[in-house]
Design a protein around this nucleic acid. Sequence first.
DNA 1: GACTGGCACTCGCTACAGTCGAGTGCCAGG
DNA 2: CCTGGCACTCGACTGTAGCGAGTGCCAGTC
Lengths: 340, 340
Amino acid sequence: MGLDDRKLAVLRAIVEDYVATQEPVGSKALVERHQLGVSPATVRNDMAVLEEEGYIRQPHTSAGRVPTDRGYRLFVDRLSRVKPLSPAERRAIERFLVGAVDLDDVVHRTVRLLAQLTRQVAVVQYPSLARSSVRHLELVPISTTRLMLVMIADTGRVEQRLVELPAPVPAEDVTDLRRLVNEKLVGSRLSDTPPLVQALVDEAGPHLRGAMTTLSTVLLETLVERHEERIALAGTANLTRGGLLDFQGSLRPILEALEEEVVLLKLIGEAEPSTTRVLIGDENEVDNLRAASVVSTGYGPGATIVGGLGVLGPTRMDYPGTIATVRAVARYVGDLLAQN
Amino acid sequence: MGLDDRKLAVLRAIVEDYVATQEPVGSKALVERHQLGVSPATVRNDMAVLEEEGYIRQPHTSAGRVPTDRGYRLFVDRLSRVKPLSPAERRAIERFLVGAVDLDDVVHRTVRLLAQLTRQVAVVQYPSLARSSVRHLELVPISTTRLMLVMIADTGRVEQRLVELPAPVPAEDVTDLRRLVNEKLVGSRLSDTPPLVQALVDEAGPHLRGAMTTLSTVLLETLVERHEERIALAGTANLTRGGLLDFQGSLRPILEALEEEVVLLKLIGEAEPSTTRVLIGDENEVDNLRAASVVSTGYGPGATIVGGLGVLGPTRMDYPGTIATVRAVARYVGDLLAQN
DNA sequence: GACTGGCACTCGCTACAGTCGAGTGCCAGG
DNA sequence: CCTGGCACTCGACTGTAGCGAGTGCCAGTC
């Protein structure tokens, strides 16, 4: 089990070379490109140990070594420093995000930026409703039996939903409804609203009871239950870089997974404060993504987290660079949101 | 130039077989599978003519024939009848679209349905704002210098945008603004609004002048200029069906094109009433899509058209079936919208 | 005891030759 | 105008051989 410093250096060198060249790396090439100070034969012995421990493997008997998922894991955890961003990258981020007029706009720009910088598939979750508070609720009469419910959250998200009323409701009553729901709900976290919504129904005057009951159902559905999360995606074309070597020949499972919002949320939505999460190959719980790695983190104004963002790519990716970029972009987006 | 009936029958048979098997089709196989009533040698002569005219070609000297884009074109125009949908498909469409609560919901369901039925990439344009009318405008105060502008269109679309006011505006003035913009703009087509918006500024009382000027700018930007069109996409994983034979080996250009909203709009957004448009391979103006075909049509309540939808797939696709499905889905969606 | 040089061995990759067969074009005859 | 026959083409597949990168092991050295 003893992995001395040199063996770790060998592993690091293998990962770096393989990521750069995409070809299995042999002992001779290794000593040439890195100053390890020992002969190829020694490196070979180290490699044999690393292989036995499951950090690298040979695709074919007479080929060089390739890192395993476990090898990448060790590399990420102990052998790499997060690369500082180049000034050019910092400038690119700022230039890209300045001038966003809108939450939608921010999210779209962010996801494109992330895809472009990392040259991978980027995923950005809209600020989670569960973590937002109600800033305002608007009821717009469409007809006597139809209302448009518009909810504005403090994170900038705006959700709307059509409400079909059981019976015609006069304009004054709509005003009353509007006042009531705003009095009760504005300022509270969406995740805390269910009991408040229930209370609304109980407190409504008899003439509002019917309308309020319907409204409360829609409120609960829209704000709490139904696909409350939204996702933006960009850079799928980057999956085709590196020929078909990555992803073991078929993009199919990856593309399928990317179409499932639920899957994406699982990947990037479970962020903990100020951590960057790296999931490598097999560590991924989604079967379709066993050949991919995901780097994700949370973002939000200040220290609070309102959503997640990240990138997905081949296990053979530049982890230090990707991690740095994901973190930097998340921080910039957080700052941008804080300005509201 | 004489393409007699039998030569056309041969072309039809070639297209059908090639679409079904994905393999170049030879003269012998043709006479076996179709009752042409002639010998392989005769078919060969016909093939030679068809090739000379550019309707089919040989991938290799000793291989069978494959339709060219021009061949597909002739097939679509003159040799195929639109396949009636199976009852199962009709039921699938109804089942899928019933229960949509929302415009967003309708669009999402539609695009997934279309992808599933055609087993191709589906694209649905949200009802175009330019073709919608204003149903209601709402101004929600966020702070004294910030308003949220919410526009509800008769097609069900809801757009919102933050307005940064040059100076604080008291609540009464917001009420006035709201009344003014609604009086002037409700009911008019979005494409007709620019002069009306201009008039608003001129007519506003002096104390509202500043706020109204800013508001009008945002109105014009949001409603008329800025990315007024939205698009939903599904089924990209279907691109990987048929191995890498379709799309001449690389999905890259296709995936790139699919990320460009502008490109997609060009493909499906220019629908004329009740026509189904079929673009085959080279006919496509987008370079990245020279290896693909697009089947698209307009949809909307009754006879009016508010948006486009369609599918994208390999030139080797089942045109009659795809056309039928696209049309049927468009009609169902139109009916659904008409119920509003 | 750790490292090194040397050596035999493995095995994927490439090139090359040979065979097979699907499919063609052409031609003479019905 | 259609058909059967025939020579021809050429891609796909198979088998063989040589090359070379890379390995594992071992005996020798510091």
